[in-house]
């Protein structure tokens, strides 16, 4: 008899506990999902216009930051007049790098990280090289086009 009551009681406890867990899950799941911001599709652009050569020549540091989709990029006019393009997001903490003609490096002012002009991290905290992009100069329009990767 004692045992029966206990069994019934523990059964009710499980039922109640399970119910509470189910309710919390029903409340928690939508909130968890809601907290995750929806993915906004990235710009499908495979190539963007970074600016014109004239702009780059006139720029004080001989570099320009441009938008590639939702990410910043940098085009640099090297001393030999070659144009190179990189992702401008420092691999350390996502600051935006700039070109330092005096040191001939890509430099991140936030934590003094330095990259050489192939994007390799050479000093300071950056853990990885900058992604190098492909820059094409179109003489007719004076535009610099940048695309990611070799094939593009």
């Amino acid at each position: 008899m004692q045992n029966d009551t206990l069994k019934r009681r523990s059964f009710l406890n499980y039922l109640l506990g399970g119910g509470v867990i189910a309710v919390l899950a029903a409340i928690g799941f939508p909130i968890y999902k809601y907290l995750k911001p929806p993915k906004i599709p990235e710009a499908a652009e495979s190539q963007v216009t970074a600016g014109t050569l004239a702009e780059l020549q006139a720029a004080e540091g001989r570099y320009k930051i441009f938008r590639f989709g939702r990410k910043p990029g940098i085009v640099v006019l090297m001393p030999n007049n070659e144009i190179r393009a990189f992702s401008a997001s420092c691999t350390h903490l996502d600051c935006i790098v700039q070109y330092r003609p005096d040191l001939n490096v890509l430099w991140c002012p936030c934590h003094n990280g330095k990259y050489d002009l192939t994007g390799r991290n050479i000093s300071g905290p950056p853990p990885r090289p900058l992604e190098q992009w492909v820059a094409h100069y179109d003489k007719a329009s004076d535009n610099i086009f940048v695309s990611k990767g070799e094939g593009a």
Binding site: P30, Y34, K36
Partner: peptide
């Protein structure tokens, strides 16, 4: 329209 369960909240 975009956020999951946003309509519910």
């Amino acid at each position: 329209s975009k956020v999951q369960f946003g309509w519910l909240i």
